[in-house]
Amino acid sequence: MLTYILRRLFISIFLVLALIAVVFFMLRTVVPGDPALVLAGENAPPEVIEQIRHNQGLDKPVIVQFLYFLRNLSHGDLGRSSMTRELVTQRLVEAMPITLTLTGLCFVYTMLLGILIGVITAYWHDTWLDNLIRVLTVTGASMPTFWFGLMLILIFAVGFGILPVQGGLSVRGMILPTICLGTGSAAYLARLVRAAMLEVLNSDYVRTARAKGVRELGVVLKHALRNALIPILTVAGFQIGGLLGGAVITESIFGLPGMGTLSINAIHNRDYSLIQGTVLFIVVIYLFVNLLVDISYAYVDPRIRYN
């Protein structure tokens, strides 16, 4: 297992370099727009645009820019944001607590709600309850975030006045973003749990367990849920990776300056260093989370082995 992990980590370094190289060259060669154009504003004359380009080092050959970038990267320097002049690493560090909080809350919410609904609907499958919940979860899952977030605000903040529209990192402020972001995933997870559990519930060993007189709830939780864990884990990996990478829409609606806001604004401002930083961060997160998921497979299901 250890060799497996080390090998994965070793390969990851090259993958990360490959990805940031691709992004680096794409931005500077084929993606229209550049930071100078953004910084020059609307009415700056051509010579100002040229000078900004020069000041930003954008007039050098792309390959030279890349070598500079690599050199700085080797010192852990990701450069400065062209818009705010802040160190990119600092921006990432600033965005982290928000992103981690939202991810954590959302993960807990998704898991609790998703597994609960999944278990209920699988246990009482094909009853009216199952069908009702199925309609509700599907509606939830097909509701776009930009709509759901606004509806939550209109209902709970404007209508009932019990929660703030944008409450920042406070407890009350995080409730609506968590629901907005987590409900869709929970519905999705519930469906997966239900499907996985139905299979298990029909399997011989669960029926055997039941036949042996094990209490119903015990059967469901111990055998069935345990065996439905692989898809749950896989999806959880996605959710965590995705959430850490930033929930652009939810963050924007609820005014949370996490990774999502950071990366989308970086792209809109063509803030090259910042884009590079967010891409680097997100790819590392994904590689790491998926490594964890793969490792946990082996623990959850002893039949899975890596060599």
């Binding site: 990805l19 794409m26 084929v30 993606v31 997100i282 790819v283 998926n290």
Partner: peptide
């Protein structure tokens, strides 16, 4: 397995909006 899954990780991490801007300009 390793090769396929690492490529998938890269796709996941790739900023989709940059891809979209590029695709439409191309």
């Amino acid at each position: 397995d390793g090769a396929i899954m690492r490529v998938m990780d890269l796709i996941l991490a790739f900023p989709g909006i940059i891809f979209a801007i590029w695709l439409v300009s191309m």
